[in-house]
Simulated assay, not measured.
Amino acid sequence: MLAAVILDKGIRSYNGCLFTRPLLTKACTSACTAALGDFLGQLITKQPKTNLISMARYASFGFVVTGPLAHYFYKMLDKIVPPTAYGAALKRLLVDRFTFAPLVLLLSLYILSRLEGKSHETCAKEVKAKYWAALKMNWKVWTPVQYININYIPQQYRSLFANLVAVFWIMYLTNKRRQATAKNN
Rank of each mutant, 00 (worst) to 15 (best):
A3G: 04
K79P: 00
Y152W: 02
N151F: 03
W169C: 01
T143S: 11
T29W: 02
E126T: 12
I111L: 09
T66A: 09
Y157P: 00
N15E: 15
T143A: 09
T84I: 14
A101P: 04
A85E: 15
P68S: 00
L109W: 01
K140Q: 14
S108C: 12
L93H: 00
K91D: 08
T25A: 06
D78P: 00
L173C: 12
R178M: 08
M1E: 13
A27L: 06
L23I: 11
M1A: 11
I6D: 03
Y152E: 10
G62Y: 04
N185T: 13
K118L: 13
D96I: 09
T29Q: 10
G87S: 06
L23R: 08
L52N: 09
L93N: 09
Q146G: 05
V104E: 15
S13F: 07
A88T: 08
T143E: 10
Y157G: 03
W169H: 00
A124E: 11
W139L: 07
V127T: 08
E126A: 11
S54P: 05
R177S: 15
A166N: 13
G10H: 04
Q155H: 03
T174Q: 14
R178L: 11
M76L: 15
A27V: 04
A89Q: 15
K140D: 10
T45H: 10
Y172R: 06
Y131L: 03
E121K: 12
K140A: 15
L43A: 07
G37L: 05
A31R: 03
H120E: 15
S60F: 03
T122Q: 09
Y14W: 03
A85L: 10
R12Q: 08
P83F: 02
M137T: 14
R57L: 03
V141K: 09
P154F: 01
K125D: 14
T181G: 07
H71N: 07
G62F: 00
L36W: 08
L2E: 15
I53V: 15
F168D: 07
T25E: 02
V167W: 06
D78H: 09
P144Q: 10
F161Y: 11
R114F: 00
I153N: 03
V65I: 14
K9Y: 08
I148R: 10
F39R: 10
V165F: 13
S60W: 00
A4E: 14
I11S: 02
K136F: 04
I80P: 02
F168T: 08
K91M: 09
K118V: 04
R57E: 11
Y152H: 06
C17D: 13
Y157K: 03
T29K: 02
L112M: 08
A59T: 03
L103Q: 06
N151W: 04
L7E: 12
R158P: 01
K91E: 01
W169F: 03
